[in-house]
Design a protein around this nucleic acid. Structure first.
Lengths: 257, 257
DNA sequence: TGGTGAGCTTGATAAAAGTCAAGGTAACCG
DNA sequence: CGGTTACCTTGACTTTTATCAAGCTCACCA
């Protein structure tokens, strides 16, 4: 198997592999291999059969979809993220396309291995169910974000989420190009610019990828973040003493399918 | 246990219970009870802790969400459907509210029983994973439907889907009030009316809940249905010889969380 | 050093969807 | 049977978002 042990370690730390014991983990990884892709490589097109679970270890991947000459971005993934887990579980065709945005390293795990491990080890299977449930809830959040908020409100909440993740400082660095950010927030680059200028009222100033907050209270008054939509903490969280992961995802952020 | 055997039979036929053996099924149903609710009863509010898996046996339920005085419908469920499965698996709070639209019968299954069965029986656990994966894909379809199509296109595709499900006849009966249908399709009742009149070009005529199609070809030319968005067959389907269920759902139709 | 191009912004315009107000129809009920 | 009510439709208007067309900035490079 062509996997460096450092990579194996990172994969093991993914929520649903963490709970697997060693033999199950080894069996789930049977036939897995690491592959490197340049930027702008299409990994998967809509409708393609899905043979592997993809685990992004380095780089960035955009999940998208198109219809009648329109295109839309469904999620931008950053390491470490898995994608098309749902299609793997169902042995069905992909509903989205996947394209690298940067040079990326991706671990490809054969669907058969994963499904077999799930069927043999109920604990591991349950962990995958938790992962799928978390992904589902991420999409519910996305839909709420889109249907209940206008573009300026979505941007305001995105900025506040980034601020929390980057340590509650009064400046943040945008992790994507603005056109990518616009796609992620479901608007055109033009409207992203306009949304930023609407937020200057609320003490938001932008210079390149740097955003400064001079009046967080005013921004929060507009944004009204809520745990029922915004998942400020993308890492593991704790409920009833049991650790599990529920990632923010889909149109909001990182990690999908 | 207060469950009629006729109801037990219907529950057993739900995709992910069908695959369970009898002892597992019995264990998953430990402590389950049937409850009747009048119309317009709130079963669950956003943010409520979720203690039960809900299985709708009779009636209709709307799943919705709100923010800042706005409200939106995420799905309309019809029997037999489960809901808030994802929250049950994760033992977390509901991200959506659930309200009966009609007098309804609902089987409430304790979350503990379900989770325990999943952890004890890998086959059952895998079946739940398949269900969650199907739900996830239903939401992906919903998002694509919303982001890639305008309201008239969504209506056109909805009508074609109903036509397939109701037997490819040239008339169908709308299964919901128009205002409910509007919510389901993500538009206002006013715009639903306008969308219907835009479709009169394509041979669509409406009288009350009855819709007639006089030029299906023209309608399809506008609607351009695709299996990557529209799931015409809400029932079980077959892939690689193995039966599994992938329901259409979310904003498109029936069945959720 | 001056050109080239990608990314971003700005303004003008157009399309899509929501809002508000009025009216029509049909079922239900006193 | 007349009146109330819920639902649907229609028209005028507003808001939101997308589109198109310039321009601007800045890094990169011949």
């Amino acid at each position: 198997m062509t996997i460096r042990s450092a990579d194996a370690e990172r994969v093991r730390n993914i929520s649903f592999f963490k709970q697997a014991d060693d033999p199950t983990f080894a069996r789930a990884m049977t036939g897995a291999f690491l592959q490197r892709f340049p930027a702008n490589t299409t990994l998967l097109m809509e409708g393609d059969p899905v043979d592997f679970l993809y685990i992004l270890l380095e780089g960035a991947v955009e999940l998208g979809a198109g219809w009648k000459s329109k295109d839309t971005t469904l999620a931008i993934l950053r390491p470490v993220s898995t994608f098309i887990l749902a299609a793997v579980v169902l042995e069905s065709d992909s509903l989205m396309s996947a394209v690298t945005l940067e040079r990326s390293e991706i671990l490809m795990v054969p669907g058969d291995s994963l499904r077999r491990s799930m069927k043999e080890d109920a604990t591991f299977g349950f962990a995958v169910s938790e992962e799928l449930a978390g992904c589902y809830r991420g999409l519910v959040r996305s839909i709420k974000n889109h249907k209940l908020r206008d573009s300026t409100e979505r941007l305001a909440n995105y900025l506040l989420t980034q601020r929390v993740r980057q340590g509650e400082k009064n400046t943040i660095v945008l992790p994507h190009e603005k056109r990518v950010l616009a796609a992620l927030l479901g608007m055109t680059p033009e409207n992203l610019s306009r949304a930023f200028s609407k937020l200057s009222d609320k003490g938001v100033s932008v210079e390149g990828a740097h955003v400064r907050f001079d009046n967080v209270a005013a921004l929060e008054r507009l944004a009204r973040p809520t745990p029922l939509i915004d998942n400020h903490y993308a890492q593991d969280c704790n409920t009833k003493g049991k650790a599990f992961t529920e990632r923010q995802q889909g149109l909001l952020d990182t990690k999908s399918d």
